[in-house]
Design a protein around this nucleic acid. Structure first.
Lengths: 195, 195
DNA sequence: GCCATTCTGTACCATTTGGTACAGAATTAT
DNA sequence: ATAATTCTGTACCAAATGGTACAGAATGGC
């Protein structure tokens, strides 16, 4: 039989995701990708079909990873602590580079809303999934009397998500850590989730 | 002497802005622009230098227009009514098409943050100018005792702006009017500006 | 009418885009 | 070692990119 070795597909995908995350879909050229992934053109097409398919994979990876993070937290923490945990790990504890890159799904939605329906839809779905995770947690907490019912769980989740989206824009526009910290605190305060 | 006629530069600029607004910088090609503006290639370069320069002009136009809107409102309305007025005119009263296009400056920041510093900076500055307009209004209202001082004017303005940015993402992701309306109401409610 | 001037439309350009073809190197089972 | 197979690197492709050159039409003062 023949050789079975292969470049590390996962690592290459990860490298591609980083680049797409930072520069977006259109502005990332194939040569850029090949250099970052450390593979040759033919290997690229053999393993990932097209640039567009690769982007989809990256988007899925990013989305699933983010969702997993929220789900993990939802197991360990009370619902009222979820937003703070999410904001802090992704905006204060993360590296400045990552913070400045914002959220790949948000970036994608804004870049491709009028350009590529399918890619846009994937990003939107992943965002919705995260919103739903928050909503589930809030509803449960309300049923157990751990959270006031001034607003429904869904409304609250949408609100947390809207602030989250806003924070992603802020962090991409100007990544002053102290400013982000201040916004996070004000947000949690007005949400009535200030610890 | 020679002819003085010229295509309507302002109208052409407007048309370009609409296209850039919807599709972003990179995804808008020169032929697309020429068609939308209704002018020929040579006229384009004679009047607007390059695609990039044109984009800058469009960005300035969009930003100035938005800022003017806030400033106008700030003259007529109490500071506590400003956010509602802004959200409603741009997200509920505007045409679905415009709503779906989001905010050109936000779109630009997310598309070009890692790609074109200068364009990104222009967009960021315009956004800051709007935030400052809100901050001024809030500070004044606080001095006059019309607004509580639980948070500083700047903090409040940043918060309104963060929610605004989030709403632009939401509206570009999924322009259900009723959902936007709901988010706006929840936002104003938790901000203590629910009228 | 005529000339000067400034417009417009088209043909053209080099570069870059994403994607394909194919030769040759590398690896594994026999 | 050999054969089978799958990798990699390079050369190549058509299409699209932003930008330029230039011929010719349209308009103004005389």
């Amino acid at each position: 039989m023949a050789r079975s070795v292969e470049f590390d597909r996962t690592k290459a995908l990860e490298a591609a995701m980083k680049l797409f995350w930072a520069r977006g879909y259109t502005a990332t050229s194939l040569p850029d990708l090949l250099a970052a992934m450390g593979i040759a053109r033919s290997s690229f097409y053999a393993s990932f079909s097209t640039k567009r398919k690769l982007f989809m994979e990256c988007l899925e990876l990013f989305g699933d990873r983010t969702l997993a993070m929220v789900d993990e937290d939802a197991k360990k923490l009370p619902a009222t602590a979820l937003p703070r945990a999410f904001f802090e790990t992704t905006l204060l504890d993360a590296s400045p580079r990552k913070v400045m890159q914002g959220c790949m799904m948000v970036n994608t939605v804004l870049e491709l809303a009028d350009v590529d329906q399918e890619l846009n839809q994937i990003a939107a779905q992943k965002l919705d999934a995260i919103e739903n995770a928050f909503a589930r947690a809030f509803k449960l907490a309300q049923q157990q009397g751990e959270l006031n019912t001034d607003h429904t769980g869904i409304e609250l989740a949408r609100m947390v998500m809207t602030i989250n989206l806003g924070l992603r824009v802020q962090s991409r526009k100007n990544h002053s850590r102290t400013e982000l910290k201040s916004i996070i605190n004000t947000s949690l305060s007005i949400l009535g989730l200030a610890a």
